[in-house]
């Protein structure tokens, strides 16, 4: 009896694990299947480097160039990341080098609240709060890459803070006592030793966070303005994720337009795989070489 139960249990665990693993293959296969037919009609160069996106023929022919969307995705992610680093590193420095254990256990869950807020709500607050500010500052519609970057920065903060303050805590435990024994003040040691000692790991976490930012859809879509333009900080732009979300509803199944949207999503996914795998390979190599 116990033996049967156990065999059944192990089988269940095994097959569910296989299912979890296989889901990746399924996603890749079913997105690739709809994406690849595009390249029978549009050359990869025209697709990735073209700047004209005209999915429906209004007399001038169709064209599918996603260059501006790629640039828009990169621009908004990097803007968001830089802003998030600016604030997140400072906050992590405080949490790791100044806060007591009690304050830390109190603040971490509060900061984690940010990770739970739905991205639509971020977009909504961005529209209600940032848009008027940018209009007053002279941006015509108030919607721009910088506004989306700010919203994105807030969304990235919890990931960045938890990753970087964890690294900094380790560096602090190692480096702060000997530094203070040399008479170096806490904050000088924090800035001069803990921060540079954690830099490499922080950069890797930032890379992962940029990946997360590039896949973000709703919040970015709501405040970035969505126009096929080469992104400027105070100009409109459109990300790949927003392009898909906005146009999937109108794309006729199996049309070139439909395949092009899948191809854009496929490219985005592959890019994120490369970022994720690259960083984790780097991390494990550094670990093996005995870094921090």
């Amino acid at each position: 009896m116990a033996k049967t139960a156990n065999r059944f249990f192990m089988l269940l665990i095994g097959s569910l694990t296989v299912l979890a693993i296989l889901s990746l293959a399924f996603v890749i296969w079913f997105v690739a299947k709809e994406a690849l037919p595009l390249f029978r009609e549009v050359s990869p160069a025209a697709f990735f480097l073209g700047t004209r996106w005209m999915p429906v023929d209004f007399g001038n022919g169709m064209s599918f160039g996603i260059f501006n969307f790629i640039m828009g995705t990169l621009a908004v992610s990097l803007t968001g990341m830089i802003l998030a680093l600016l604030v997140g590193l400072g906050a992590s420095l405080y949490l790791s080098c100044a806060a007591t254990q009690r304050v830390r256990t109190l603040l971490y869950p509060v900061i984690d609240l940010l990770a739970g807020i739905p991205s639509v709500v971020y977009g909504f607050v961005g529209l209600m709060v940032l848009k008027p500010v940018f209009i007053r500052a002279g941006v015509k519609t108030g919607l721009c890459v910088l506004a989306a970057g700010i919203v994105l920065a807030v969304m990235l903060l919890p990931y960045l803070i938890s990753a970087s303050s964890e690294t900094m805590l380790k560096a602090r435990a190692r480096c702060l006592p000997p530094a203070m024994a040399l008479g170096i003040s806490r904050w000088d040691a924090a800035a001069g030793i803990v921060l540079p000692a954690s830099a490499r790991n922080i950069l890797m976490s930032a890379g992962l966070a940029v990946g997360r930012a590039m896949g973000e859809t709703m919040a970015v879509m709501m405040v970035m303005g969505n126009a096929n333009l080469f992104p400027k900080l105070l100009g409109k732009g459109e990300s790949i994720a927003a392009l898909i979300a906005l146009e999937m509803g109108t794309a006729v199944a199996d049309s070139t337009h439909y395949h092009a949207l899948y191809a854009a999503g496929f490219a985005l996914m592959i890019l994120l795989f490369v970022i994720n795998l690259g960083i984790s390979a780097l991390r494990s190599r550094l670990l093996r070489r005995g870094g921090i």
């Binding site: 480096c175 008479g183 170096i184 000692a197």
Partner: peptide, 27 residues
């Protein structure tokens, strides 16, 4: 000043994760 006059070494070797030279010149 007190910390300069009385140096301290800890149980676990804890060099700063920099070069040897920078460890020595930091203070």
């Amino acid at each position: 000043l007190l910390r300069r006059k009385i140096g301290m070494v800890f149980q676990i070797p804890s060099p700063f994760p920099f070069s040897i030279y920078r460890n020595m010149t930091y203070a």
